[in-house]
Simulated assay, not measured.
Amino acid sequence: MARKRDPQQREDGFHQLLPHAAEHLDELIERFEHEQDDHGLRCWLLELIAAAASPTALPILTAQLNGPDESLRDWAAVGLSKLNTPEARTLLWQARANGTIT
């Protein structure tokens, strides 16, 4: 549904998947890594990855936290906050200290 032209169908698909993000994490990560054309879709995918709150997402969240895209950095920070592991907290602290996130 994420590729539908109808914005409401896209929104509905996102909200249907949100509570099940952890079940589909590997697929979400794969889609995120291959999506280059649709910035909004990349943001939604990273939001879903963040919602999964899984250590499996740590590498992609870390990469986006240090990336050039502010929107993706914000979603990466959300995901790391939800993950709430010592490593995730350290990454967030470093990003705040560097001024990468607020």
Rank of each mutant, 00 (worst) to 15 (best):
L18Q: 10
W44D: 12
T85V: 06
L83C: 05
G79W: 02
Q16C: 04
Q16H: 12
R5C: 03
P55I: 12
Q16D: 10
I60S: 05
I49P: 03
L41P: 03
D38L: 09
F14W: 05
T85W: 03
N98M: 07
L92S: 08
H24Y: 09
R73G: 06
L17Q: 04
A63G: 04
W93I: 09
L48F: 10
G99H: 03
Q8K: 08
L92T: 12
T90Q: 09
T102P: 13
A63P: 02
E35D: 07
T62I: 01
Q9K: 14
N66P: 02
A50Y: 04
A57F: 11
A63R: 15
L45H: 05
E70P: 00
E70F: 08
E23I: 07
L92I: 13
W75F: 13
E23K: 15
L61A: 02
W44C: 03
A51K: 02
A21Q: 15
H20N: 14
L72V: 07
P55E: 11
D26I: 07
L83D: 06
L48N: 02
A95W: 03
A51S: 09
A88D: 04
N66V: 02
S81Q: 05
L48C: 06
N84H: 09
W44P: 00
V78T: 07
L58V: 04
A76E: 08
A88G: 13
E87Q: 14
A76Q: 02
L58K: 01
R3S: 12
F32W: 06
T56A: 13
G13L: 05
H34D: 15
L83S: 13
A21H: 06
A2D: 13
Q9L: 14
L28H: 03
S81D: 05
C43T: 12
K82M: 07
L41A: 05
T90L: 14
L41Q: 09
H39M: 11
G79D: 03
R73K: 11
A50V: 09
T90S: 11
N98H: 09
M1Y: 00
L45S: 08
A77P: 07
H15L: 14
E11Q: 10
A95V: 09
L45Y: 10
P68C: 00
L17A: 09
L28P: 07
L91E: 03
P55Y: 03
D38Q: 13
L25P: 06
H34A: 13
L46D: 07
E33W: 02
E33G: 05
P59E: 15
A22G: 11
H34M: 12
Q8G: 00
L80S: 04
A21M: 08
E87P: 00
H39E: 15
E23G: 09
H15A: 00
G40A: 07
L61G: 02
A51M: 10
T102Y: 08
H20W: 06
L92F: 10
L61E: 00
L25M: 07
D26R: 12
D74Q: 13
I101C: 07
N98T: 06
E33T: 14
L46F: 01
N98I: 01
H15T: 02
Q8F: 02
A52V: 11
T56G: 00
P7Y: 03
L72Q: 01
Q16A: 13
R5L: 09
E23M: 09
D74A: 11
L58F: 12
S71N: 11
P19V: 11
L41W: 12
L72S: 01
T62P: 01
A22K: 15
